[in-house]
Amino acid sequence: MELPKMKGLFGRSRALEVEIDHFHDKLSQSAVIFKTALAAYLKAGATDSFIERQEHLNALETEGDKLRRSIETKLYAETLIPESRGDVLGLLEASDEVHGALQGALWGFAIELPDIPEEFREEFMELGDMAVMTVESLVLASRAFFRNIEAVLDHNHKVEFYETEADKISSKLKISIFRSDLDLARKLHLRTFVERIDEIADKAEDVADHLNIYAIKRSI
């Protein structure tokens, strides 16, 4: 039977597997970069070191976008995984929003240059860490969706846990900000940044919720 065609089928699948792996790599790298960029900003403001990291994250996001489009086109053009491609498409697009949230938060710092008082910096960092952990667990869950469906629920559980922690920290931080002596304009400005970082965790949790359903569908 059409041997070259079969070889082609496996070759194409292999290439696409690599692309999907790369897409996940980009997201997980971006999360780590976000963390170091936030630390750099909290330490010394928008220094060169911060700008360099921010640009790195932008580049990663662009590459992620390209990969996503390429994967989506191939899935449909070559009618691969007809049953799950809708889900894969949803997964990639939602993950892209997480990527966007990471990028957006750093853009905010670079453009608006918020002045974060010393007493809030530690909590900002804690919030950032928690958001990054949510994204990292999400990447694990998403990788598991492709390779080891049963592990998806374990990783998703962690996503949910970190997201709740992030919510707690963000509420606490917002209370501290609004109970402080800062003027209202600065309070509102700081709140925007708390929310932007918290949004990363929220978006990651949205993806995890979808993943839960996709995983159940796949296991039927």
């Binding site: 699948s13 691969l80 049963e150």
Partner: peptide, 17 residues
């Protein structure tokens, strides 16, 4: 399949064949 832990796409290719 639980043991093999195939990639979704690999599984798809094998299933087709």
């Amino acid at each position: 399949l639980g043991f093999a832990k195939l990639h979704l796409l690999r599984l798809d290719a094998y299933t087709r064949v």
